[in-house]
Design a protein around this nucleic acid. Structure first.
Lengths: 123, 123
DNA sequence: CCAATATCTCAATTGTTATTGAAATGTAGA
DNA sequence: TCTACATTTCAATAACAATTGAGATATTGG
């Protein structure tokens, strides 16, 4: 993930329809959702949806595959991770206080409970 | 951090001058940098700089204070953390594989070595 | 107070992006 | 093959964002 890609990703996420599309797709998981389903979910015309999906695709945040007469879109999880890591890397140069709260929040959210270590007691 | 704020933040970060400004400020730490210093660092005219700094301020990503005849800008660390958490929260609904790599990268980057717990051995 | 410095404001120009509706493309079932 | 369905393309319009340069505002040292 370089600056150019990060800018494209941020621009893609800086639009409410697209942000909602990405959120829906992320929650939908790798199976993804058909374009028509997405149109209903975010309340956008099919032609406008197509425009936004293309923008997201160009930004590398989603991918598509044909399935029957539908086209199924899904989140590009590695790109999302990469963007987050790009942001974080820049937040940490000598200032861990910037992202420590985010790490804490994530650690709870992303670690299945049965694998979670007890919180350490720090001095 | 609600959707409106996240959109404003993403829009602010989706511009190369502003992204560089934020990165400089984040690395500079809480002490911040004078506007003139930033202008030199990112190569932008003072009037254009003023425009971009105001955009970042409106997005809540930076703050400013006067010091002598200079105005010192600094990163709004809590807003950055909040944005990251907003993004992450949406990435995790049932799909930890999305952000686990990011968490791993962050955990190393943001935890001072002396406080780091040994990596757990999981089955 | 005056001059120098630092930053901001304003208006004009240019370029980019979002939205709409109509028409075109591609797919599958009868 | 014909028809219905799902999605995309295209052109036009409207809204928004970035840049520039000139001038205004604020602060300090002499």
């Amino acid at each position: 993930m370089d600056e150019r890609q990060a800018l494209a990703a941020f621009a893609a996420l800086a639009q409410s329809h697209r942000l909602r599309l990405v959120r829906h797709l992320v929650i939908a998981g790798p199976d993804g959702l058909a374009a028509g389903t997405l149109a209903g979910a975010v309340g956008v015309s099919t032609s406008n949806l197509s425009f936004h999906l293309k923008e997201l695709d160009h930004a590398g945040l989603i991918q598509s595959r044909r399935e029957g007469r539908s086209i199924i879109y899904s989140a590009a999880y590695p790109a999302l991770s990469g963007l987050i890591q790009f942001l974080m890397k820049d937040c940490c140069q000598g200032h861990p206080e910037v992202c420590t709260p985010a790490v804490a929040a994530l650690a709870v959210c992303c670690t299945p409970a049965e694998r979670r270590r007890p919180e350490p007691v720090l001095p």
